[in-house]
């Protein structure tokens, strides 16, 4: 995650401008100082910048503002009074046990999903990286779930994990009762496994890119020093792919925070009894279904703040500063 790029130094410009010659050198130079060597860049990027402002920046500010208002849906064009509500929405959210439940659920999800994702994707990526035969086949097999719609895969998982589904038939007497998706203990772990399985291919590709950049000499010198394959996996591979690990941690956490489709469809709207409700599902229920967008916005703001805190801690722990 290189946040800094060689941005155009605004001062060091006129070198090329002189060569190309402008109609009014003085004014052109001043304009160039203001807009950079090639002001057309701004023009060409304008659609993208407008898009970011319209679809990301403004709604983000709007969401925060809304969470401090007594906001409600009104007919388009109608001028209504939406008084400032201070922290009322937040107070309402924090007193709602369903909200605590949803955040707790996402915690369970992350505890299962994130470590499993990191371990399995690194394991499969390193196996794939050294495979000689059928690499393309394995790569495609691994990312097929990632490129398929959740809605389609939910269909087959419902069939597989239903009470008398194939999974329970194979497990026989070991099958959980009540079955996976309607069991309040197992509903959230089932969703975590589903998402791990579905997203894994993408993270395998990320790790594969990182593994291909590890210099071969590192392995050679490790082996000269007498390290076996397991030892060199832990002391060469894992440290070398640390930037990728930081990224996988971040992206899988964000995916977890975004959870909606799976609890909505797989467990029939966060069932049983709210045991698999996610914060985003709650935002939908409170905001759109029950018409309290202000409350939903407050849940959203809390969610993003929590994700930022978790991402910061992960970055510290995984030593992301080196990337």
């Amino acid at each position: 995650m290189t946040a800094t790029t060689p941005a155009a130094p605004p001062g060091a410009v006129p070198r090329k401008a002189d060569r190309r010659g402008t109609a009014s050198p003085g004014g052109g130079r001043r304009k160039r100082k203001l807009l950079g060597e090639n002001p057309l860049g701004l023009l060409f990027s304008a659609p993208y910048l407008v898009f970011i402002i319209l679809v990301f920046a403004y709604p983000l500010v709007f969401a925060v503002w809304m969470s401090f208002q007594d906001y409600f849906f009104a007919a388009p064009g109608a001028v209504v009074d939406r008084p400032f509500a201070g922290l009322d929405n937040y107070a309402r959210v924090l007193q709602d046990p369903a909200v605590w439940r949803a955040f707790g659920n996402v915690g369970i999800f992350l505890i299962i999903n994130v470590p499993l994702t990191v371990i399995l994707s690194l394991l499969l990526a390193s196996a794939l990286n050294r495979a000689v035969h059928a690499r393309a086949f394995f790569r495609v097999a691994y990312y097929v779930p990632y490129v398929t719609a959740s809605v389609a895969i939910v269909g087959v998982w419902l069939f597989l994990f239903s009470g008398n589904g194939l999974v329970n038939n194979v497990l026989g007497p070991l099958a959980p009762d009540p079955s996976w998706l309607i069991n309040s203990q197992l509903a959230m772990p089932s969703i975590a496994l589903f998402v791990t399985w579905k997203q894994l291919g993408f993270y395998i590709l990320l790790y594969l890119a990182a593994l291909q950049n590890v210099p071969k000499e590192l392995y050679e010198s490790a082996s000269t020093d007498g390290a076996g394959p397991v030892r060199s996996f832990f002391s060469v591979t894992i440290p070398s792919v640390r930037p990728a690990t930081v990224l996988v941690l971040l992206l899988s956490t964000v995916t977890g925070a975004n959870l909606f489709t799976e609890p909505y469809l797989l467990t029939g709207g966060g069932g049983p009894n709210g045991a698999s409700t996610s914060p985003v599902l709650l935002m939908y229920q409170r905001g759109i279904e029950q018409g309290n967008p202000d409350v939903a916005a407050a849940i959203g703001v809390i969610l993003v703040v929590l994700v930022m805190i978790i991402a910061f801690i992960q970055r510290k722990l995984a030593g992301g500063d080196e990337s």
Partner: peptide, 25 residues
């Protein structure tokens, strides 16, 4: 080379970690 290039690139990276679902409402 233009003024605002660095900021625009940083935005493009940042946008990828903004949970879209927050913007839903």
């Amino acid at each position: 080379q233009w003024r605002g290039r660095g900021v625009t690139f940083a935005l493009a990276l940042l946008v990828q970690v903004v949970p879209f679902q927050l913007l839903m409402i």
